[in-house]
């Protein structure tokens, strides 16, 4: 069964068509890579799926439910989480608090009940804290729990963002260039980390420009160019796809 179905999604910004009739789906437990040259519309697709900029037309179905036009926090509550291309941590909050905030939708104390500290709230808070520590341990940041998020080095900030996203208990995790700015060994351990999430049956959609990384990580690849899907298939198929080669080569030449 597919966990996410993107159907004929188009997103316009004024006259610019950032997404042009994109359709694809992700199976439960699958890791899908999303590639494409700069400006292809990858981040825009993430924004459409997570409710930041709802699609102009088309529909998005998550776990059998149409989520286009739901507010972002409701989509998160349904089990969809993401990280950002431009890291967006709460820099003034501690590492631990960043992760705890991720658990907002998973705790019962409602917005208003969270005002008071009843024994129930206290217990729940302890539980939240314990789970946050577990996640930090998982991404190797337990020692930094009390530091402010803004003080972490870049690679660790990326991992903290992943931990925070995981704290929302997602079924599908959207990662926007998780390896960007990392060196080779960091990229390697990131890959191991992401693969290890499979044990939870977590599905992932990963945007990445590091081809080695994304090809070896993904079960399937979707390639966008100028907002439209130009290829989809196994890593081997997509790498050999003439439109993909042209898209990348064309851009490389332009860039030179």
């Amino acid at each position: 069964m597919d966990i996410l179905r993107v159907e004929h999604v188009t997103r316009k910004f004024g006259g610019l068509i950032a997404l042009d009739d994109v359709s694809f789906s992700i199976e439960k437990g699958e890791i899908v890579g999303l590639i494409g040259p700069n400006g292809a519309g990858k981040t825009t697709l993430f924004n459409a799926i997570t409710g930041v900029f709802p699609p102009t037309s088309g529909s998005i179905v998550f776990s059998g439910m149409a989520i286009d036009h739901l507010p972002a926090h409701r989509i998160t509550a349904l089990g969809l989480a993401r990280t950002f291309q431009n890291i967006r941590l709460f820099k003034e909050l501690s590492v631990l608090e960043n992760v705890m905030i991720g658990r907002h939708t998973r705790t019962k104390s409602g917005t208003f009940r969270g005002m008071f500290k009843t024994p129930f709230e206290r217990r729940e808070e302890e539980e939240t804290r314990a789970r946050a520590y577990d996640l930090l341990a998982r991404v190797g940041l337990k020692k930094r729990a009390q530091d402010t998020a803004g003080s972490l080095p870049y690679g660790e900030q990326r991992r903290l963002e992943i931990a925070r996203a995981l704290a929302t208990e997602p079924k599908l995790l959207l990662l926007d260039e998780p390896a960007a700015g990392m060196n080779e060994s960091e990229t390697h351990s990131l890959q191991d980390l992401l693969v290890s999430f499979r044990e939870w049956g977590l599905s992932m959609l990963v945007v990445e420009h590091d081809m080695g990384f994304v090809m070896s990580l993904s079960d399937r690849i979707v390639c966008l160019n100028f907002g439209a899907k130009i290829a989809e298939g196994t890593p081997e198929e997509v790498q050999a796809h003439p439109l993909v080669i042209e898209a990348y080569l064309g851009r490389e030449e332009e860039a030179v």
Binding site: A72, T76, E97
Partner: peptide
């Protein structure tokens, strides 16, 4: 915490389910 998160970045807070 939700207020502090919203203060720092409202869009990110929203995406995190607040």
């Amino acid at each position: 915490k939700a207020i502090r998160a919203t203060s720092e970045n409202i869009d990110t807070a929203e995406i995190l389910g607040i």
